[in-house]
Amino acid sequence: MELLRYILRRMLLSAFVVVGVTFLVFVVAQVVPSDPAALYAGPRPTAEQIEKARQELNLDAPLQARFATFATAMASGDFGISYKSRRLIAEDLRAYLPATLELAVFSTGLALLIGIPLGVVAAAHQGRWADRLGSFGSIAAVAMPTFFLAMILQLVFAQWLGILPLSGRLSREIAISAPLQMITGFNLIDAILAGRFDVFGDALAHLILPALTLASYPAGVAMRLTRSAMIEILERRHIVAARALGLSEPRILFGHALPNAMGPALTVIGLSFAYALTGAVLVEIIFAWPGLGRYVSEAILAKDFPVIAAVTMVVTICYVVMNLLIDIAQALVDPRVALS
C-alpha cells in the first residue's frame, strides 16, 4: 500500500518534469537568434519563399496556440520534419535511439558490474594495499579523457590483438549480405529473436569497446561511492551483530552490508545512464556508432531546431523513466524508503 502510493507519487513528479522540459524547449526555441523560416526555405531563399515557409510552419500564430500545437505534437510522438534534411524526425529517431539506448544500458551495466564489487572489496580492505590500488584505479578511470581511453582500447584490442572490431555497430558483411530485421532496434535482442547467433556475437563484439570507454567514468564513481557507503555501513551495529552470530565475512559483506549500500549504488545508475545518453557524442563519433549523439551534434551545427527539440525530449523521457525505475527499485530494496 505504502509502496503503491509512493510509486504513484513518483510518477506524478516524473510527469511534471516532462511537462516542464517541454515548456523549456519551446521557450528556448523562441529566443534562439535564428530564423527557422529562412532555414526551412532552403539555401539562398527569396523573401517570398521565406514568407511561404513562415506560413507553412505556422510561425505567425499567437504564442499560446503555438505552444499547444508543439506540446500536442510532442505528446503524440510527431516531432515534425528536419529543417535541414526534410526527413521525418520520428523515423530518424527510430533508427538512432535504439543504438544509443543499447550502448547506454550496456555500458551502465558494465560500470556497475565493475564498480560495485571493487568498491565492496576496497571497503573490506580499507587502508591496505588492495584499497590503495582500487583508489588509484578509480581515480584513473574517472580522470582518463574519453578519447584517450578509446584510442588505447582500439590500439590494443583492434589493432594489436585483433580480437575486437575497430568501430561500427555491425560488420559490413552482415549488414549488407544478411541484414537483421529490425524489431526492437536493439541488435542484441533482435538477433536473439531471429535466432541469429552469428549476428549476436558480431553485435556484442562491436559493443564492447565503446561500452567499456563509456563505462570507465561511471565505474570509477560507482566504486568510490560504494566504498565510502560500505565503510560507513561496516561500522554499524547490525554488522557487529552479524559477526557475533558467526556469519561468514563474504556473507556479511555482500549479503548484509551491500544491500544497505544499494541506495548510493542505484543513484549511480541514474548518473551513469544520463552520462551515457548525452555524453556519448564523442564516443559515438570515435567508434562510428550510429546513435543519437552523432545525429544531434550534426543538428546543432546546422541549427536544426526541431531535431534538437526532439532529441532533448526523447533523452529527457528516457532519463525520467530510468529514474522512476530506480526510485521504485530503491523502495523495493529498502522498505523504509517508501515511508519517507
Partner: peptide, 21 residues
C-alpha cells in the same frame, strides 16, 4: 567461538537488526 558457543544480545535491538532485510 562466537556465533557457535557465545552469542550477543545488544542494547539497541533496532540497531542490531539489518533494516533492509
Amino acid at each position: 567461538l562466537r556465533g557457535r558457543r557465545i552469542g550477543l544480545i545488544s542494547q539497541d535491538p533496532a540497531a542490531a537488526l539489518n533494516p533492509v532485510l
